[in-house]
């Protein structure tokens, strides 16, 4: 056990990413502020990215894993910009960003 703890390998990084994923899930499920939910999504994307890059370091995947991680970061940037524009529109219309109050499909 001590030996296993003293040499960080693939499993250690995967466990860190699993804990980050569950924290992001917790933020998405329990918060009612749209921006907190967005931050939870960012945490989940980061945990997925840690997985990709850990596999590229420790297995035969090679640099393809880092490439996928790079594209995840690009998509996350686009997602954050569009999502915050949508949040600003929602705030302009409903005067609130509480998810429980935004319940109309037709504004």
């Amino acid at each position: 056990m001590i030996q296993w703890l003293a040499e960080p390998g693939l499993t250690h990084f995967l466990i860190v990413s699993a804990i980050l994923f569950s924290l992001g899930l917790m933020a998405i499920l329990s918060k009612r502020n749209v921006i907190m939910v967005l931050m939870g999504v960012e945490l989940i994307l980061n945990s997925a990215n840690i997985n990709m890059i850990a596999f590229s370091r420790f297995t035969d995947l090679g640099l393809d894993g880092q490439m996928i991680g790079l594209f995840v970061i690009i998509i996350a940037a686009a997602e954050a910009a569009v999502a915050l524009a949508i949040v600003l529109n929602i705030y302009n219309r409903f005067r609130s960003i509480n998810l429980d109050e935004i319940s109309l499909l037709k504004g």
């Binding site: 995967l14 699993a18 569950s22 924290l23 899930l25 499920l29």
Partner: peptide, 20 residues
């Protein structure tokens, strides 16, 4: 920020973490 569903959310995310 308002926090709701604290108990079900904790149970679900702890379950997901344990499973993963």
């Amino acid at each position: 920020t308002i926090t709701v569903n604290l108990v079900p959310a904790s149970i679900l995310s702890l379950g997901v973490a344990a499973l993963l």
